[in-house]
């Protein structure tokens, strides 16, 4: 028996001997190899950094994610501590990152570094996970987390609340820019998971009615420093 792989490739090569016509296009062609090619036909992500921040705020509001802007990292820590009290969090896990340790230190509830001693059962029982991120996409209100920037795969999805702490300089206008940044930063050594998070987890499976917190976090906070 010849192996499945060569059979499938043989079938593909045979099939492609007859060419198919190009689709009937109305404008220009495919996105380019380099992501710097502007795509002025997609949703706008803003020309200037200020535009981008405005668009981001609008998008996040529509997605029912909460944006909190603070001037410096000390205020970020304070904001998280306040949230933990007002929301009555009992257990909080965070990504072991130099910017997040002071945030955790300001908490009054039980907290631990999720990636230092990973325990999925313990993580399931916690109220909130705090992570950094790779970048933030203004155009769509998406936050890009990765297995390296966000304490692995589970921390940003298993706890009931996800808090992201980032700097305004991490905001990029559009998805193309975020993907270009990923390539520039990680090259051929990608984190095993990269995830664009666009609002709190949601479902419309029951009568197409929107419900937040299907399996992932019910609440998403973005604390933007600067």
């Amino acid at each position: 028996m010849s192996d499945a792989r060569s059979d499938i490739f043989a079938r593909i090569r045979e099939a492609l001997k007859v060419k198919a016509p190009k689709p009937h296009l109305k404008g220009d062609g495919a996105p380019g190899k380099t992501s710097t090619v502007a795509k002025p036909w997609l949703p706008d992500g803003g020309e200037t950094a200020e535009d981008s921040l405005t668009i981001l705020a609008e998008q996040l509001a529509k997605l029912k994610a909460v944006l909190i802007r603070v001037p410096d990292h000390a205020s970020a820590a304070k904001a998280v501590a306040e949230l933990s009290v007002s929301k009555n969090w009992k257990k909080v896990a965070y990504h072991g990152h130099d910017l997040l340790r002071p945030v955790a230190a300001a908490l009054t509830c039980e907290n631990w570094e999720a990636d230092a001693s990973f325990d999925k059962q313990r993580l399931e029982g916690c109220d909130a996970g705090i992570t950094t991120c790779e970048s933030i996409v203004a155009q769509l209100g998406s936050i890009l987390v990765s297995s390296t920037s966000s304490g692995g795969r589970a921390l940003s999805i298993l706890p009931h609340v996800h808090v992201v702490i980032a700097e305004t300089s991490q905001v990029v206008p559009d998805l193309g820019a975020a993907l270009a940044l990923v390539k520039a930063r990680h090259g051929t050594d990608m984190p095993s998971m990269l995830s664009f998070i666009t609002g709190p987890s949601r479902t419309g499976d029951i009568e197409r009615i929107l419900v937040l917190g299907a399996h992932g976090p019910k609440e998403l906070f973005l604390i933007l420093v600067g």
Binding site: P43, Q59, K62, L63, A114, D115, A116, F118, K120, L140, G141, S142, S147, T148, G151, G152, R153, A154, I157, L175, M190, P191, S192, M193, L194, S195, F196, I197, T198, G199, P200, S201, R202, G204, G216
Partner: peptide, 24 residues
């Protein structure tokens, strides 16, 4: 498909857990 700007989670996986990653 769903009238959303972007689906809630769009995730890229390149492999199993890598050295240095805590889970996966």
């Amino acid at each position: 498909g769903a009238g959303q700007p972007m689906t809630c989670y769009n995730t890229l996986y390149s492999g199993p857990r890598k050295k240095g990653e805590c889970d996966g």
